[in-house]
Amino acid sequence: MEEINDNQGIAGQARNDDNEKTLYTITIFSENMVGLLNQVTIIFTRRGLNIETLSVSPSAIEGIHKFTITAFSERDDIEKIVKQIDKRVDIVKAYYNTDEDLVFQEIALYKVSTQKLLSLDSIEGIVRRYNARILDMTEVWVILEKTGHYDETQALFKELSEKIGVLQFIRSGRVAITKSKVERLSDMLAAMEEKLNRKPTIHNY
């Protein structure tokens, strides 16, 4: 198995180019319909914005999916993009945050050679320092897992690849929770319910 030597990678390159821009986290709640992801990504495509990370999963509200997207951008652009996403019929709600508003994590998995890992002075040292854990191992390989911010998962990658090499590496998209107490969506849904109940009659088209 070949090792991954270039720990910067393409993502690292893109990050350097976007130094002056801010990393925004866009949260989107949508109906679970075919083509929804496409509806979201075409809006980034139109404005020529790279998606840095993407994570999609069912939300706490049944039938509604939650997207977490990060992208480097300027505030003005991200605001327009979010409005255009929010405008799509099947999107329930979209908003954006900066890192200060959020608690967020990414998860990374590292496959390294068992033999090389054992050659390290202290496996415990690495695991302890990075708060990583061992998920699985065979005679040939060990899989480490670490959750954290990009810089943290990247730091472990860097150390491992410098010292023993990394056979395989994967990092998830960001998942994030706002520091406010409630998901904003719940307010919106409640308001909508109220509005509908206020309606005297349903008119026919």
Partner: peptide, 27 residues
């Protein structure tokens, strides 16, 4: 403020009540 658990209830209802998907059967 409502908590997440309350919203679950709303969702469960939505599953059974098609009107939550904007689907009102007339006639």
């Amino acid at each position: 403020m409502k908590e997440i658990n309350d919203m679950q209830g709303m969702a469960g209802q939505a599953r059974h009540d098609k009107s939550a998907m904007g689907h009102t059967l007339k006639g």
